[in-house]
């Protein structure tokens, strides 16, 4: 239902309907901002990434195809790539703290939040805990292999292998 509603609004956005775009923003911006804030930590950077993402979505609404997933996952991709670029830029400039250590709260032993699709939650739960932690740190915090290694205090080669094998397991489990 959510996807159909978003799709209707996105299709109208593709025809330059500003009200539809405003409604799409209303419906999705809290999720988009949560993703951006988690990665970038600083409010002003997170807001900037969200702004850039919606400007992009307004201009590129007609490029969405259902083969690209739900409207929301497509939009999350856009804000995540923007946040990753900004994160790298600020790291190059030495302006970004490496990691503030708030990732542990994600590793809820009771499993993933209800909103995560059941199959994905099941597949994530099946991963070894190291693989799950490494993938979570990379996904939610935008950490590189090396940074995940610093956080988990494990060598680079080990981290690369955890992430690679974790993703392979997810691929099998999700039938990608």
């Amino acid at each position: 239902m959510e996807h159909e509603e978003h799709l209707k609004l996105l299709q109208a956005t593709a025809e330059s309907n500003q009200e539809a775009f405003a409604q799409l923003y209303e419906a999705t911006s809290a999720q988009m901002y949560a993703v951006s804030l988690k990665m970038l930590k600083r409010k002003e950077w997170a807001e900037e990434a969200v702004q850039e993402a919606y400007v992009k979505i307004w201009h590129n609404a007609s490029e969405y195809q259902t083969g690209k997933g739900t409207v929301l996952t497509w939009m999350v991709s856009i804000v995540r790539y923007r946040a990753l670029d900004m994160l790298r830029y600020h790291k190059v400039r030495g302006e970004s703290e490496l990691f503030e250590g708030d990732g542990d709260s994600l590793f809820n032993p009771d499993g993933l939040a209800e909103q995560v699709p059941e199959k994905l939650a099941e597949c994530i739960d099946e991963l070894d805990s190291e693989q799950r932690q490494a993938i979570h740190l990379a996904y939610f915090n935008g950490l590189s292999h090396g940074e995940v290694g610093l956080h988990l205090q494990s060598p680079l080669g080990t981290i690369k292998s955890w992430i690679r094998r974790g993703l392979q397991s997810l691929q099998r489990c999700l039938s990608i």
């Binding site: 500003q18 405003a22 923003y25 911006s29 809290a30 999720q31 901002y33 949560a34 993703v35 804030l37 988690k38 997170a46 807001e47 969200v50 702004q51 919606y54 400007v55 307004w58 690209k68 997933g69 739900t70 996952t73 497509w74 999350v76 991709s77 995540r80 994600l106 993933l112 939040a113 909103q115 995560v116 699709p117 994905l120 994530i124 996904y139 939610f140 997810l170 999700l174 990608i176």
Partner: peptide
Amino acid sequence: WEQQINDLSRQLDPVTPEEVVWQKISQRL
């Protein structure tokens, strides 16, 4: 992969951005 992996983001609690974010977007557009 985008459509599978990015569903992970639903694990995060939504955070409503300040009104100024929308204002800046509408100004830019």
